[in-house]
């Protein structure tokens, strides 16, 4: 068994340690004797999306957004859409999460179109939502309280019937208004959580892995790991947030 992971835009979407998520996924597979490959797909490069099991898209700086949108328009947006519709697993964080939605409107009213794979939109706010935060995931996403660090000025609003990844326990989440955090659509896991989010949240990490492995081999069971350090770091933050 081997998982083929695609790291989309590692050259521009690489802020806030989010690459640690890939490291976490790979290590948790390797500790269980499962192999994995990571294919980096930077701007200007294309690949056959059907050969990948799992996609990761991180967050980036506004500076590089133009380059990104122009590259997406050259076919990648369509490839991403069909991969999502095919039930491929996606973990997207912050900018990468916003990118799968319909659009982004800056606080002074300029709208740019995003991929539109899922029905949600993001509106820029003047104040950043920033700090440690936590949200409760449903059973299809590991069922645990996830802790992380959010740092975004975009407020994301999910379309009717679109499920969030979790409900906010502390902090802002999607928009600081409706108590939702992230998106959970087919096999897409979208979140504002940096940290990076996976290492400290092993249940969430394993839910993503399990979803991907299940597609390859239905009913695949993950061996348990010694997550003592992981839980220690997780519980420390929960406690600090008063949860």
């Amino acid at each position: 068994m081997e998982l083929n992971i695609c790291h989309l835009y590692p050259d521009v979407l690489n802020l806030y340690g989010d690459n640690g998520n890939l490291l976490c996924l790979q290590q948790r597979l390797s500790w269980r004797g499962i192999g994995s490959t990571v294919t980096r797909l930077p701007i200007g490069e294309t690949a056959d999306f059907t050969k990948f099991d799992l996609f990761f898209i991180g967050g980036g700086q506004d500076f590089e957004q133009e380059v990104l949108l122009s590259d997406l328009s050259k076919g990648k947006a369509e490839s991403i859409k069909s991969a999502i519709a095919d039930g491929k697993v996606f973990l997207t964080v912050c900018g990468g999460y916003q990118m799968l939605g319909r659009s982004y409107t800056t606080w002074d009213g300029v709208t740019c179109d995003f991929i539109g794979a899922i029905d949600y939109e993001t509106k820029g706010a003047k104040d950043r939502m920033i700090g440690n935060f936590a949200f409760q995931c449903g059973p299809e996403s590991g069922g645990s309280a996830v802790v992380g660090f959010e740092n975004h000025s975009g407020k994301t609003y999910l379309g009717p019937g679109v499920q969030p990844l979790g409900t906010v326990l502390s902090g802002s989440g999607n928009n600081g208004e409706d108590g939702t955090e992230g998106v959970r659509y087919l096999n897409v896991f979208g979140t504002y959580s940096h940290g990076p989010v996976l290492p400290k949240n092993p249940d969430f990490a394993d839910a993503i892995l399990k979803t991907a492995l299940d597609r390859k081999s239905p009913g695949f069971a993950l061996d348990p790991l010694d997550d003592a350090l992981e839980h220690q770091a997780h519980d420390y933050m929960l406690k600090r947030l008063g949860l």
Partner: peptide, 9 residues
């Protein structure tokens, strides 16, 4: 830095 994610970079 309140955000410690930089250690992963």
């Amino acid at each position: 830095s309140r955000d410690i994610s930089w250690i992963w970079d």
